[in-house]
């Protein structure tokens, strides 16, 4: 007789086997005292594991690791100074060469603030007109057509909730826990 592997026994405990395999395992367990003993050991082990209290670690490493993970690699000092130098040089070059740039790319005078504001308000008005022309979105729960008074509906909700609690409490509790 080939005994059941530990993996199969674990899956049997989890009810994770296919229906046919579960039935096979069940019949094997009924006939094989060694496998039944092993299954019992697993059950006891998991019961003991669940009964053990959750212990807190003495040292919490999470903040240190999270801080190190989130921190970007620091640049060498000379690179930071080089970046400042590049920025300053670029600003100086732009100031010195501004007349040359204007000569190569003749720029129009920048628009006045009032013209910008008028253009912006025109855009906003156009957008608002467009939005108002769109169909309004509304979501309504479809009516079931029950013309019952609110009291009756409330009583129905409370009754069915009590039935649901009692029914699930009875049906979903394992038999082993129901027995005194």
């Amino acid at each position: 007789m080939k005994h059941l592997s530990d993996e199969t026994l674990n899956e049997y405990l989890d009810a994770a086997l296919a229906a046919a395999q579960q039935a096979d395992a069940q019949s094997h367990l009924a006939a094989c005292p060694a496998c039944a003993m092993r299954l019992s050991e697993f059950q006891n082990l998991f019961t003991e594991l669940e009964a053990m209290p959750d212990l807190a670690l003495d040292l919490n490493l999470a903040p240190v690791i999270v801080t190190r993970l989130g921190r970007p690699a620091a640049l060498p000092g000379y690179l930071r100074w080089l970046a400042f130098f590049q920025l300053a040089t670029a600003g100086l070059a732009l100031a010195l060469g501004w007349q040359l740039i204007r000569a190569i790319f003749p720029l129009e005078m920048p628009p006045q603030f009032s013209a910008l504001a008028a253009g912006f308000s025109g855009l906003v008005a156009a957008d608002l007109n467009l939005l108002s022309s769109l169909p309004k979105f509304s979501f309504e729960i479809p009516s079931p057509g029950l013309d019952l008074p609110a009291t009756t509906l409330t009583i129905a909700i409370v009754s069915v909730s009590l039935l649901w609690l009692a029914g699930n409490g009875l049906l979903l509790t394992p038999r082993s826990r129901r027995q005194p």
Partner: peptide, 23 residues
């Protein structure tokens, strides 16, 4: 049995709350 209990619960709750929404 579990399916029956839960089916009745969800259907009744759904219908009753949908009716109460109007009121």
């Amino acid at each position: 049995a579990t399916g029956l209990v839960n089916f009745v619960f969800f259907v009744v709750i759904g219908l009753a709350t949908a009716s109460l929404v109007e009121k």
